[in-house]
């Protein structure tokens, strides 16, 4: 939106009013979208199979789990925090939900409620320790990462938990109007998270806390409470992803979600979320997740060796962070 030119808004000479849309300005704002588009075009030339509908659906479905987690992680990073526990919480949710989802034992609501509850609780603990205990988020969530994985192994005795209820499996395998359920959830949660972050008080406070915590306090924001809520929301999304993933592989596994936290953080950072806080968007993170998805899928299609895949992924993340720091310097 722009200001009505008829209004008498004086413009100081230091700020160019008729800002020309320059290349670097566009790159700053939409750089990663261009990268995504360029990758899609490149891949479609390199592999005939890439643009097939089924393949595109696969890409989105494959990335939907990490993508959903990344949305919560984005919010956490905007507040200058970090969440290293996502992968382990996926595992804990997975084994607990699976253990309650055997056919003929409990109604579907029980495993789902238990899973969501674990997600929210672990997120709450992360937030509580960070906000009230004044412990760096890196350490608090590192602790949760270890503890949740340990709990998952303890709970499951180190074994996968199979034999799951058909109705539970719908979470991972079902479709709505022909669209796989995880993709529907990815879109739905994407919209909800985007609105939450851009249009609500909760969202504005999230940015404010990350932008300047001290100023946020003085502006009358209950910083601790909102911080805890943000981590709890991240935990909730992690739980949703964890249950859908469990349903998709028909098995609750204590080793599930290994390194997901890093993929989620990578998606957020590639999507322009600043580790210095105060900056980041959900559409950006979705683009970041899709870039990772297209990269993984494309390299698999081309049969590129796993070693090279890792190197390329690392290079892209480093480049994204570099772009981010350049952007900040310019501003």
């Amino acid at each position: 939106m722009s200001i009505n030119p008829n209004e008498s808004v004086a413009v100081s000479p230091s700020i160019p009013h008729h800002r020309k849309i320059t290349f670097s300005h566009l790159m700053n704002k939409y750089g990663m979208l261009f990268v995504l588009i360029a990758m899609v075009i490149l891949m479609s030339f390199l592999s005939d199979a890439f643009l097939a509908t089924q393949n595109l659906i696969n890409i989105v479905r494959q990335i939907s789990f990490v993508g959903i987690i990344a949305m919560g992680v984005t919010m956490v990073i905007i507040t200058t925090g970090i969440d290293l526990s996502s992968g382990s919480v996926v595992a804990l949710v997975s084994v607990v939900a699976a253990s309650l989802a055997h056919p003929g034992e409990y109604p579907l609501i029980i495993p789902i409620a238990a899973g969501l509850c674990i997600g929210i609780c672990t997120g709450f603990i992360n937030g509580f320790i960070t906000a009230k205990g004044k412990i760096p988020a890196f350490i608090a969530t590192l602790g949760m990462m270890t503890a949740a994985r340990g709990l998952a192994l303890l709970y499951s005795g180190g074994r996968p938990i199979g034999n799951l209820n058909e109705s539970f499996l719908v979470l991972g395998k079902g479709t709505i109007l022909g669209i796989p359920f995880p993709i529907v959830m990815f879109i739905l949660i994407g919209i909800i998270s985007h609105l939450l972050l851009s249009k609500t008080k909760f969202g504005k406070y999230t940015y404010a806390i990350g932008g300047n915590e001290q100023a946020a306090k003085i502006a009358g924001i209950n910083v601790d409470r909102y911080r805890i809520m943000i981590y709890a929301y991240a935990g909730l999304l992690t739980a949703i992803a964890g249950m859908m993933l469990t349903a998709r592989i028909s098995s609750g596994q204590p080793s599930l979600g290994l390194m997901y936290e890093l993929d989620a953080i990578a998606a957020a950072v590639i999507g322009g979320t600043s580790l210095n806080g105060g900056i980041g968007t959900i559409p950006g993170t979705i683009i970041g997740a899709l870039i990772i998805g297209v990269l993984n899928n494309g390299l698999d299609l081309l049969g590129v060796s796993s070693y090279w895949q890792q190197i390329l992924k690392g290079a892209i993340i480093a480049a994204a962070v570099l772009l981010d720091s350049r952007k900040n310097k310019r501003a």
Partner: peptide, 17 residues
């Protein structure tokens, strides 16, 4: 240090309280 949210917009800075 204690007032502005530098990365945020003018609007968000104004309405936050």
């Amino acid at each position: 240090i204690t007032g502005a949210f530098l990365p945020l917009s003018v609007k968000d800075n104004m309405i936050i309280s």
